[in-house]
Structure formats: C-alpha cells, structure tokens
Amino acid sequence: MSADSPDMSERLDVTKPHPARRYDYWLGGKDNFQADRDAAEAIAAVFPHIRTAARENRAFMQRAVRFLTAEASVRQFLDIGTGLPTNENVHDVAQGIAPESRIVYVDNDPLVLVHARALLTSSPEGATAYIDADARNPEKILADPALRDTLDFSQPIALLLVALLHFVEDHENPWEIVKHLVAALPAGSYLVLSHATFDPLDEQTIAAMNAVNKNIKPVFSPRSLAEVTRFFEGLDVLEPGIVSVSDWRPAPGPRPTPAEATGYGAVARTRSR
C-alpha cells in the first residue's frame, strides 16, 4: 500500500490515540495529534517519568543494534512495531557501522506509512523496505514479498520487538506470536525485545496507572519479569540477561533507576536446529 492509498484517510483516525504517535510525543516529536497528546499527558500525570522511560527504551534499541552490528556481525534486521521515524533509526545505526546492512520495517499505523520514505533512505550498499502489517498477524509479515526480497534467510537476522508486546493482550497470546516469528528465523539469529513492567513501581503508582489504563485504548499490558522471561524460552539470553532497559550494556555515567525506566530489555540468540 502506498502512502496515498484511497483508504489512508479512513485508517488515519486522529480522534483516537495510537501508541506510535504517543511515543513520538514523549520523545519530543511533532507527528502526533491532540488525542495522542491527551492520552500521553494522562499517563504522565500519574507517572512523571514516562518521557525518561521512552528515551531509555529508544536508547536500549540503539545500543542493541550497535552491539549486533559491530560485535555480532549481524547485517540484517526485521524491526516490527517500528514507530515514527526519529533520530538514530535502526538503519541509521546499523548502516553507520556496516553500510551493507539491510533492514525491513513493519508497522500498522498509517501515519508511520506516510512517513515511511524517511525509513527507506538506505545507504547505496544496503537496503531498506517497509511492510504495512500488524504484529498480531505474523503470517502476513512472513509472507510479504518485501521481506524475502530484502533479507537473505540463509543468513542471521535480528528480530526487533521493542516496546511493542505490551500492546498485545494476553488473550491474543503474544508469546505464541514471538515463538512463530523466531521459528522462521535462520539459526544464529537474534531477538531484541523490550517490554514495559510495573515490577519496580510502588502500589500507589500502580493503582493510578491502572486507573488511567482503563480509559485509554489500546489497552496497555505491563508484564512481570516471569512473564517477560517466557518470550525468551528456547533462546540463549546474552549478558547481562533480562534487565532494566537502562542497565543493558549502558554507557558510562549515571542512568535512570528501574522505577524510572519501567521496562525490561534483553537480547537473545537462537540455537542451532
């Protein structure tokens, strides 16, 4: 689907908040609407560290991509739940280290699709592609011609599911979605995953967040360490393990506490089959 498809205006409902646009607002972007800003501020009112959490999650993704490109020699990335383009997108980081890197972006927000051209500015040596799809339909993603045209499934691929799965409810079985996607990857591939959690928060903050969550769609599903750990079953989790996103191979210097970052992050490698 192109950015000027006939049904684009129908899909782009600016009266309803969307996670990608809300995230854009917290990161200081301009590609958001009043409904997104209202929802974002409602959350910020009960959890003032939300902008810090968004920035830390983004920084985790960038560090993970740098590690995979520079140290693990990964040259292919599948980023599902891409979000709106901002500074240091996956291809910016990967191709800045290895210009031949190839990236496929996936998102279901029509505004992200409109801005996809910013995600498709590949280096001459590499390639980028964009798929308009929902993570809840992994079969559609895996069957899209753009995926196979861009990525070589005989070589390792890094699958990125960053700040995405907490928008997939339990009854939609996010664990099975991850299992399905990982099973399609070549041996020696990687999973980069981050997920919101209430584990480090006090009871009062949790209660306030839950009250706000009831009135904001899509429903937000923070998960415990045990629940997040399930996403990595059958994989070899790299050091330092499943930790606060701020604590995953951080740069030197002070960093936010787990209660401020409110998210787990990890990188894992698939095993030989």
Rank of each mutant, 00 (worst) to 15 (best):
R63K: 14
R63E: 06
V65W: 01
V65C: 00
V65P: 01
V65I: 05
R66Q: 11
R66H: 13
R66K: 15
R66Y: 07
R66V: 03
F67T: 11
F67N: 10
F67K: 09
L68P: 00
L68W: 01
L68R: 04
T69V: 10
T69N: 08
T69W: 01
E71A: 10
E71F: 01
A72C: 14
A72D: 14
S73V: 10
S73I: 05
S73L: 14
S73C: 13
V74I: 15
R75S: 15
R75E: 14
Q76C: 07
Q76Y: 06
F77G: 13
F77A: 14
L78T: 02
D79S: 08
I80R: 13
I80S: 14
G81H: 06
G83W: 05
G83S: 10
L84P: 06
L84W: 10
L84M: 10
L84A: 05
P85S: 06
T86G: 04
T86W: 01
T86Y: 03
N87D: 15
N87K: 14
E88S: 04
E88N: 04
E88A: 00
V90G: 05
H91L: 04
D92H: 06
D92N: 06
D92A: 00
V93Y: 00
V93C: 02
V93I: 01
A94G: 03
A94W: 02
A94P: 05
Q95F: 02
G96I: 12
G96M: 08
G96A: 07
G96K: 12
I97C: 00
I97V: 02
I97F: 05
A98T: 02
A98M: 07
A98N: 09
A98G: 04
A98D: 04
P99I: 12
P99H: 11
P99L: 10
E100M: 13
S101C: 10
S101M: 04
S101Y: 04
R102P: 11
R102D: 13
R102S: 12
I103D: 03
I103Q: 03
I103A: 06
I103H: 01
I103L: 02
V104I: 03
V104E: 06
Y105Q: 11
Y105F: 13
V106Y: 11
V106G: 12
D107Y: 07
D107V: 02
N108R: 12
N108T: 02
D109C: 12
D109Q: 08
D109K: 09
P110A: 06
V112E: 10
V112L: 07
V112N: 08
V114W: 13
V114E: 15
V114K: 15
